[in-house]
């Protein structure tokens, strides 16, 4: 399958100027100014195929938004090559932007003072969408996102979740084959998030829309993306299936015991001394958590030994959440490969 996004050795440096101190400094600033260079995106390469949904993740300030701005032709790269939809985004800007849809969760692209449908109408004219195509496509979009009742309201009167659904619809008026979403679910409640996820899945299936999405909510990624690209300080530290990331990092399991009578650390350690177990007390002295390797014999061994001696009220086997995995990676700043 063809690549819809192709990025090679992409780099973006920002110059930030600093002022010198005092009057003399201010005077010198008039002629030469001090600046420091911040590399926001540092020599990254990747490609995305048609129809993929890719999660672009990383800590605050990792360079996600900066990359998206370069991919959408807003910023000029300092160095490197970008081909998106077969074009150089910055060179052929007007032609290029007709082939993409963009949502920035942090800023609105609708006109603040006019009704949502007026914005849609203007965008329809701007993108030159034929009436018939607009009718068919937007009817579906409006229904799925459930924004029909909002259309005659001015944008400034909408709640964040209502507005975000309208933003998404606005980005899709010309039914672009490629969609960039920079934190589309920021600040939304669970129901709206679910609705947006379902919607994205649906357009991906129906139209084969390629989606590149940044978010800090990993459940978005889990629900939507098979592939993640992880960025740290401007560099790609992982690019591959989410599943693999989980498998390589979620090595252990946790078994949570709730005893009917008090238990002590020594007692438990003593019971399971044949296995490699780390015991930790839970919320009360009745609840204890054993962290073990994901190995059947170890898990059943520990459970067997403990339950043979002590009465239990409840037992849970916990998997380490993706959230925790990602947190561990951020802390270590690198990805172990399996």
């Amino acid at each position: 399958m063809e690549n819809i996004i192709d990025v090679q050795n992409l780099k973006k440096e920002f110059k930030s100027y600093s002022s010198r101190q005092g009057l003399k400094g201010a005077f010198r600033d008039l002629f030469t100014r001090n600046y420091t260079i911040k590399t926001a995106v540092d020599d990254i390469s990747f490609s995305i195929k048609r129809g993929e949904m890719v999660g672009y993740i990383g800590e605050n300030g990792a360079g996600k938004s900066t990359s998206i701005k370069m991919l959408t032709g807003i910023l000029t790269p300092t160095d490197g090559k970008i081909v998106v939809n077969g074009m150089n985004p910055h060179k052929e800007r007007e032609k290029f932007v007709k082939t993409i849809g963009v949502v920035f969760g942090q800023r609105s692209q609708l006109w603040w003072d006019i009704a949502v449908q007026e914005s849609f109408r203007l965008l329809k004219k701007i993108y030159n969408v034929p009436d018939q195509q607009y009718e068919e496509h937007m009817k579906d979009v409006i229904e799925t996102l459930d924004i029909g009742p909002l259309l005659d309201k001015p944008v400034r009167k909408l709640s964040l979740g209502q507005r975000m659904r309208c933003e998404l619809a606005a980005a899709l008026i010309h039914n672009p084959p490629l969609l960039f979403l920079d934190e589309p679910t920021i600040g939304l409640d669970v129901l709206v998030k679910l609705k947006i996820r379902e919607f994205l899945k649906r357009i991906n299936e129906k139209y084969g829309t390629t989606i590149l999405l940044t978010t800090h909510d990993l459940s978005d990624i889990e629900a939507l993306c098979e592939r993640v690209v992880m960025l740290d300080e401007g560099k790609i530290i992982y690019d591959g299936p989410l599943k693999e990331l989980r498998e390589n990092w979620a090595e252990g399991k946790q078994i949570q015991f709730q005893f009917s009578e008090k238990a002590t650390l020594e007692e438990l350690q003593n019971l399971t001394k044949d296995h490699l177990v780390v015991w930790e007390q839970g919320e009360s002295d009745l609840i204890w958590i054993a962290s073990v390797d994901s190995d059947e014999t170890v898990i059943s061994g520990v459970i067997g030994k403990v339950t043979a001696v002590k009465k239990i009220a409840d037992l849970k086997i916990l998997e380490i959440s993706t959230e925790e995995i990602i947190r561990n990676i951020y802390v270590e700043g690198a990805v172990r490969h399996g």
Binding site: T72, V97, I100, V102, I126
Partner: peptide
């Protein structure tokens, strides 16, 4: 100043 030009730059018009 508010960074709204970003939106203007992803629109297909001068």
């Amino acid at each position: 100043k508010e960074g709204k030009v970003a939106i203007e730059m992803v629109r297909p018009y001068p």
